[in-house]
Simulated assay, not measured.
Amino acid sequence: MEPEQATMTRLDARDIEILKILSREGRISKADLAARINLSASPAWERLKRLEAAGVITCYRAEVALKRIAPHVTIFVTLELDRHDAGSFRTFETLAEAEPQITACWALGGGFDYLVQVVTRDIDSYQRLMDDLLDRGAGIARYYTYVVTKTLKSGASLPFDVLLGPDRP
């Protein structure tokens, strides 16, 4: 499998500032965003629309304190497929994409094929999920389960200064 190839979008200092603000405060009003980047509302709105159209901003989300509304467990799973051909990867990825309890999934280079994040009600429901994936022909050779016991940091804004380097605005 090849890594995703992305078209790089040219950003100036104000675009980057918009991204920094939105990554921390996704519900900020357009008027407040414009004031924070020192632009009037119309040019700020145009920049925001351009970033969305270019696929730089892909969605807006709320971070939910799940522990306040439902019992749950978060589990990370590293797994290896039994075969390493394009069809096997597609089969697993199709099943993973369709499964609502799989909240994130990354293809890896190295010892494991995938890192999967599962959020489910309890360990029993997690095991039923894994048994179901095995029964449905996901092609999993082996998997390793890591139960999250404490969240230290989650949903942090992106490290734009590190990613863009000192030469960028």
Results as ranks from 00 to 15, higher is better:
residue 111 G to A: 13
residue 109 G to S: 15
residue 50 R to F: 05
residue 129 L to W: 07
residue 70 A to H: 08
residue 156 A to P: 00
residue 128 R to W: 09
residue 101 Q to W: 12
residue 79 L to S: 09
residue 3 P to M: 11
residue 21 I to Y: 07
residue 153 K to G: 10
residue 55 G to V: 11
residue 148 V to I: 13
residue 106 W to F: 15
residue 77 V to M: 11
residue 107 A to E: 10
residue 91 T to P: 01
residue 60 Y to D: 10
residue 114 Y to Q: 08
residue 49 K to M: 13
residue 53 A to W: 00
residue 57 I to Y: 05
residue 5 Q to L: 04
residue 1 M to Y: 06
residue 98 A to F: 06
residue 79 L to W: 05
residue 128 R to P: 00
residue 151 T to I: 13
residue 58 T to Y: 03
residue 55 G to H: 12
residue 26 G to R: 09
residue 125 S to Y: 07
residue 92 F to K: 00
residue 29 S to P: 14
residue 127 Q to Y: 13
residue 100 P to S: 07
residue 92 F to Y: 03
residue 4 E to M: 09
residue 98 A to S: 12
residue 76 F to G: 15
residue 105 C to F: 06
residue 157 S to T: 05
residue 92 F to M: 03
residue 79 L to M: 14
residue 53 A to G: 10
residue 77 V to C: 10
residue 73 V to I: 15
residue 73 V to S: 09
residue 77 V to Q: 12
residue 138 A to P: 10
residue 162 V to D: 10
residue 152 L to V: 13
residue 160 F to R: 00
residue 98 A to E: 14
residue 117 Q to M: 11
residue 36 R to P: 03
residue 54 A to M: 01
residue 64 V to F: 13
residue 75 I to Y: 03
residue 101 Q to A: 14
residue 30 K to F: 09
residue 131 D to M: 14
residue 82 D to T: 14
residue 34 A to T: 06
residue 153 K to M: 11
residue 111 G to H: 12
residue 97 E to V: 01
residue 137 G to K: 06
residue 135 D to R: 15
residue 72 H to K: 07
residue 121 R to I: 12
residue 150 K to V: 00
residue 148 V to E: 03
residue 53 A to F: 01
residue 14 R to L: 04
residue 79 L to I: 04
residue 156 A to Y: 01
residue 11 L to W: 05
residue 54 A to T: 09
residue 10 R to P: 01
residue 43 P to H: 10
residue 17 E to S: 02
residue 53 A to N: 15
